[in-house]
Design a protein around this nucleic acid. Sequence first.
DNA 1: CTGTTAGCGCGTTCAG
DNA 2: CTGAACGCGCTAACAG
Lengths: 339, 339
Amino acid sequence: MRATIHDVAQKAGVSVATVSRVVNGNYPVREETRQRVNAAIKALQYVPNMQARELNMRCSSSIGVVVPGLYNMFFAEVIDGIEDYLHRGSYSLLLCCAKNDPRQEMQCVTDLMSRNVSGIIVISPNTEQVAPAFYEQLQQRLAMVFINSYTAQLPDVSLVNDDARSGVRQALAWLTGHGHRRILFVRGDHSDSYRVKEQAYVEFMTENGWLHREDIVSVGEGNGTMTVDHTARRMQSVLSDRSLTAVLCCNDLMGVGVLAACRKLGIQVPQELSVIGYDNISLGNFITPQLTTVDQHMFRLGSRAAELLIERITTGVCHQLLLDNQLVLRETTADCRRS
Amino acid sequence: MRATIHDVAQKAGVSVATVSRVVNGNYPVREETRQRVNAAIKALQYVPNMQARELNMRCSSSIGVVVPGLYNMFFAEVIDGIEDYLHRGSYSLLLCCAKNDPRQEMQCVTDLMSRNVSGIIVISPNTEQVAPAFYEQLQQRLAMVFINSYTAQLPDVSLVNDDARSGVRQALAWLTGHGHRRILFVRGDHSDSYRVKEQAYVEFMTENGWLHREDIVSVGEGNGTMTVDHTARRMQSVLSDRSLTAVLCCNDLMGVGVLAACRKLGIQVPQELSVIGYDNISLGNFITPQLTTVDQHMFRLGSRAAELLIERITTGVCHQLLLDNQLVLRETTADCRRS
DNA sequence: CTGTTAGCGCGTTCAG
DNA sequence: CTGAACGCGCTAACAG
């Protein structure tokens, strides 16, 4: 079937060691021999078997990435960043979808481990739901980086986090600075990041004495095919409370859902209601009115995570990064018209 | 570091062969021995090394997927379908982004090959631009499936194609059936699928004597971050030709770009101009007016491709599938108001 | 400069 | 039912 190093050696009339040397270029080889070997390689279309090489060298150049799903463009953009960085270091990327299910998330990680990846990046891990001991056991045996995980105190896991608290506060500061007081907070289930954002929301609103517990609603699954529709449907009843003048959503999919509901209910955005999303996926740019949102710089989130993973693999050092974000004002926000 | 089969054997006081047998459950092992082995496995947190196993068994349970990029949700949804199918068969997915560049596409394929994948799925391959011999050489040595490739006559490569000709004809039939005659065709560069769609367009328009060669324009890169903006900018001049009454785009990103241009130019959609996209990514549902488009059933495209790849790997048989698609009428299409 | 050899971790004969 | 030995394709000493 596929040519091996032996075939090449035989064809070139040299030993396997010599072939290995010209392939890897790590030891001197006489020019003429090199030529012969290269000719044989070309003739046989020889491609080195990494699997064998890595088995021998006790290392692996593939790394695993676990995502809840690909439906939310957020994940695609983060993966893009990861892939871009890894590719430069000639690592390769093993992708695994956890389907927003903690059980499958663990399964993915073990799968990946058995495939001998040298490290794993988990995007938005469900550390709350996953058996608490699970990641704790693993952290010493496997290099891991979590993106947007806010639960675990795992000293041997690197973290790359969007500064969700700051993002939420920026959004709320803008809204309250423009007169809004009753601000609906829209979150989803099963992700640590929703919890952290809610915390930040509660904190901010409490500080100012504006908290209404009933202004916090969940729309269920926040990253699925149905998120926009579910949100839109859920909002139809919620938004009938016309004392609300603004909405802050945990991601842009929900933001789009809110806008859809407004259209159906005849609520003018931003005149009657301001809406802010979170993430800044391109979608927000394409809709009308364009969605005001908090930019997470998803590509950077991914590439920094890849960077940290490689560092953790090669040096053992790990870091906790808190990346800044930025409120992007577009067309769904305006002064509060009511008092 | 990681426990090996030897460590387990030693701890359990048996031979490596026995451990292998209880792990794989393919040979009889005395119940008591099995228990001892399992205990050792648990104690050592032993995870079999697939890499070694597969090297030994001359097989591989990972398959490669090459995509031009992840920016267009089309690819994410196709990958979703692939991953879903593969996961059931406990295959795993090695992802590689070709960045819309034929050179990198070849690089990706060789990379993946050296990682010993047992097969590769290439989504929207650049068969035109890739060195023609490249895939031809490979087809016997590696199981391959192309998704939406319309060029190559490669007998050993399975194909899963959207019936682009039919999709384009459905769209044009609807438009012309509703009075439209001057229909702009918007395509991008560097993808075989654009060429095929253009062909179908030319064919259809010629049949009816309505072809204007100048009604075919390219917006450059069709799957990038900038596609929507580029399209929008390009359209500003193109759409000044007010004898055009409809636009057919090669994908939804371009469709959204056209809508953006219309908004800027004050062109009423669909009253003054009908717009049809292609793919049916969720985006089209979220914008206003909602985009009429041709649904490619992307998830199915992916899962069928995975299915064919597994079949090709296990039985050697390959197929060429032409999947049907469906015009989805939404809010960007209407009767032609001009004569 | 080059060839020989010993594993990397594992599954699988073949003997017991 | 179990163990010893071989080899998957490759790299890294060690000899020449």
